[in-house]
Write a protein that binds this DNA or RNA. Sequence first.
DNA 1: TCTCTTAATCGTATATTTGCGATATAAGAT
DNA 2: ATCTTATATCGCAAATATACGATTAAGAGA
Lengths: 111, 111
Amino acid sequence: MAFNKKEEFSTKEQSLAAFAKAISHPARIAILDVLAKKNECICGEIVDVLPLAQSTVSQHLKELKNAGLIDGTIDGPRSCYGINWKAFEKFSNEFNSLFNNLRVKNEKACC
Amino acid sequence: MAFNKKEEFSTKEQSLAAFAKAISHPARIAILDVLAKKNECICGEIVDVLPLAQSTVSQHLKELKNAGLIDGTIDGPRSCYGINWKAFEKFSNEFNSLFNNLRVKNEKACC
DNA sequence: TCTCTTAATCGTATATTTGCGATATAAGAT
DNA sequence: ATCTTATATCGCAAATATACGATTAAGAGA
């Protein structure tokens, strides 16, 4: 049981679900907000702003990184993060595609 | 530990995160797709289309319902589901607000 | 009434997520 | 060389999510 059946769905569905998952926690939305405001290159500043421990923030950053939404580069003793705008726009478009698709499909079915 | 710290974030962040969570599983995206295609009133048809057991589909439907994205009405021995387009548009707009907000904040920070 | 169909719910197993403290790592400062 | 600072990672605990089969509930039809 509890086998992972996610791969039985379409690639598009999986990709959208993965993106949604990446932003499915308020902490990660807050992180994106901080990164957008400061343009790039913030590290422990995020920890100061969020009500979470450093290790927890680090974990959330890792997830955003894995999802491709942010980039992280090591800059001396600290880490520099920034939004990957290219990936961000891609996802934003995919989202709107999904929304529009649902609307269009419904219009066709309706009348 | 593992205390839920979600409520320490802003209402907007929580609400967006909750919506993202609702569509963070391919099965739930697939369900929305089916509901859009058939306009409304589908029940066990979803089970036929998805590679999941009836009880699992029922659970996913419940989550979408809790998130407010779909409505379910009992129609005799069967259940009738449909997308709650009002809520859907609300979320769609909130999403685009988030995306635009991040873009604007970044432009200001940039130069 | 009894049966069939449809769907929700319960119980259970397993997997994943969330969170923290402690520890490791790595670069800069002293 | 050692100390400090910044972050990542490890190990753990608790909570949530995912999935299924079995059971329940409720209307439809014989």
